[in-house]
């Protein structure tokens, strides 16, 4: 399993802060996202937005990044601090 967190506007629109996702060897962030969309078809539009960012274990990654059990993933909108 990987833990997936959502933040800010994305968390509000999905009405979900955290979700567990089963992963198999060799899968990537893209596979995790596809699984989430399969489970929650209403999330498709939000998760496929091209400006959604992804982090694995606190580091920015792209969709090809491999994931393994125990990783923490996060999806969130562009950041607006400062």
């Amino acid at each position: 399993m990987v833990k997936v967190k959502f933040f800010a506007a994305l968390r509000e629109r999905l009405q979900c802060a955290e979700h567990s996702v089963p992963v198999h060897a060799g899968e990537s962030v893209a596979a995790v996202r596809a699984w989430l969309i399969e489970q929650h078809p209403g999330w498709r539009h939000e998760l496929l937005e091209k400006d959604v960012l992804c982090a694995k274990n606190f580091v920015f990654v792209d969709l090809q990044e491999p994931v393994s059990s125990g990783d923490e993933l996060a999806f969130f909108p562009p950041v607006t601090g400062g």
């Binding site: 933040f7 969130f76 562009p78 950041v79 601090g81």
Partner: peptide, 20 residues
């Protein structure tokens, strides 16, 4: 552009997430 902070503004008309 890199630090994961997000601002939400609260006004009389409602609350809005700030766009990057």
């Amino acid at each position: 552009t890199q630090a994961p902070f997000w601002k939400q503004e609260h006004t009389a008309e409602g609350s809005y997430w700030v766009a990057a």
